[in-house]
Structures are given as structure tokens and as C-alpha cells.
């Protein structure tokens, strides 16, 4: 639903409702007159003059019924969002149970000596992720963003993770480096972080794989 349309639609509905009540009021005021062609009584003549004022006041504050309906709609929307979130969490838990879950994250710091182009991840010599970065994604990483590059299932035990980083190194030369880590997958979920940092004394980028317990 377009949020900009809602106030207009409420005002419109309120206007229609006010008009409806005003029409009923006029009809009721006119009904008791006994003559076939009743002359407008002072009360009936005054009624239309007072109605626009009432309409103005009513259009400023929507009737309570509509307010309640709007609140109910908002409540239902909130429930749907909550339900969606719960479903997402349940799906993740079902697909990647904690006892087999391995998640790999990527972060970047400074990035003066390395312009990231792509990352390939292998676990136990099997390619599990290959990601090509756009300029906007690299910019987001440099601003402190952390990307979940891989989420999968691995058996309990020792595993080797190898990450290949491709991009432009110092002086704009093509750069390809690898980093490896052997980790022990326990019963709980395993989190691994790939970090790209600048090694200032060497004027070279540094690629580190960190094992988060």
C-alpha cells in the first residue's frame, strides 16, 4: 500500500461519511413537516449553514471507526512481518542446523593497497563460494560492512578453508593471493572471518583468516 495515499483516502472516506450523515440529518429535519410543499423552517434553513462547519471539524479528525480499522491494519502488517522473520529463522535453522553450520564472513579495512575484485572460497578442496564485487559493494565493505559470503553445512571434525583474493594491488597491478586455515568443527556453529587489511610498513595488503569460536 502506498503510504502517501492513505491520508487522502481517509479524508475522502470521512468526507463521504459526513455528507451521508448531513443528508440523513436534512431528511429527518424535513420529514415532520405536514404540508405537501413544506416551507423551510428556520431550523431546517439553518441546518445546511451549520453542516459545513461540522464537516470541516470531522474531516480534521477521522471518525473513531476508521482510526480503529487503520490501527488493526497496522497491527496485521506488524504480525505478518514478525511471522516472516520467524519463518526465516526457522528455515535457516532447518537448512543449516547449528551442529553442522559453518559461516564465512568477509571484512575489509582501509583498502589502500588492494582493490577487491573477487573472492573464491574452497573448503576441503571443493569450491563453495565465488563472489564478484561491484564498486558499490567494495565501498560498503570499506565503510565497515561485513558480508556473509558463505553459509553451509560441514561435518564435525577438521576442515581446511582456502580463500583466493583477486583484485588490483599496489600501483594497480593485478593481484591474486591465497590464505588458508585449518579449523576444527565442533558441535556448535562455526564462524570464520576473512580479513583484508593494509600492511603499512610493507606497503602491501594482508589477508588473514580468523577462526571465531
Amino acid at each position: 500500500m502506498n503510504p502517501h495515499r492513505r491520508p487522502v483516502s481517509i479524508a475522502l472516506r470521512a468526507g463521504v461519511l459526513v455528507w451521508f450523515w448531513a443528508a440523513i440529518g436534512v431528511a429527518q429535519a424535513a420529514a415532520p413537516a405536514p404540508a405537501p410543499e413544506p416551507a423551510p423552517t428556520p431550523a431546517a434553513a439553518a441546518a445546511p449553514a451549520t453542516d459545513p462547519v461540522a464537516a470541516q471539524a470531522s474531516s480534521d479528525a477521522p471518525p473513531a471507526d476508521f482510526k480503529t480499522l487503520d490501527q488493526e491494519v497496522q497491527g496485521v502488517k506488524k504480525d505478518v512481518i514478525e511471522l516472516n522473520k520467524d519463518l526465516f529463522v526457522l528455515e535457516e535453522n532447518l537448512l543449516f542446523p547449528a551442529n553442522t553450520q559453518v559461516a564465512v564472513y568477509l571484512s575489509m579495512d582501509v583498502g589502500t593497497f588492494f582493490a577487491l575484485d573477487s573472492v573464491t572460497i574452497k573448503i576441503d578442496n571443493k569450491e563453495v563460494a565465488n563472489y564478484l564485487y561491484t564498486a558499490r559493494e567494495v565501498s560498503a565493505l570499506l565503510k565497515g560492512g561485513v558480508q556473509r559470503i558463505y553459509l553451509g553445512n560441514q561435518k564435525v571434525g577438521k576442515h581446511e578453508i582456502v580463500a583466493f583474493f583477486v583484485g588490483k594491488g599496489p600501483h594497480g597491478i593485478d593481484y591474486r593471493r591465497g590464505a588458508a586455515l585449518t579449523f576444527d568443527k565442533g558441535i556448535g556453529a562455526k564462524y570464520v572471518e576473512l580479513k583484508i587489511t593494509d600492511h603499512v610498513p610493507k606497503h602491501q595488503p594482508e589477508f588473514v583468516i580468523k577462526d571465531w569460536e
Binding site: D117, S118, Y131, L132, Y133, T134, A135
Partner: peptide, 10 residues
């Protein structure tokens, strides 16, 4: 996501 002719990824 693909590499472009100008070397940028889109």
C-alpha cells in the same frame, strides 16, 4: 554479477 568490457563488475 559479471565483469564488463571496461573491467568493472556489474
Amino acid at each position: 554479477a559479471l565483469k564488463g568490457l571496461d573491467g568493472n563488475n556489474l
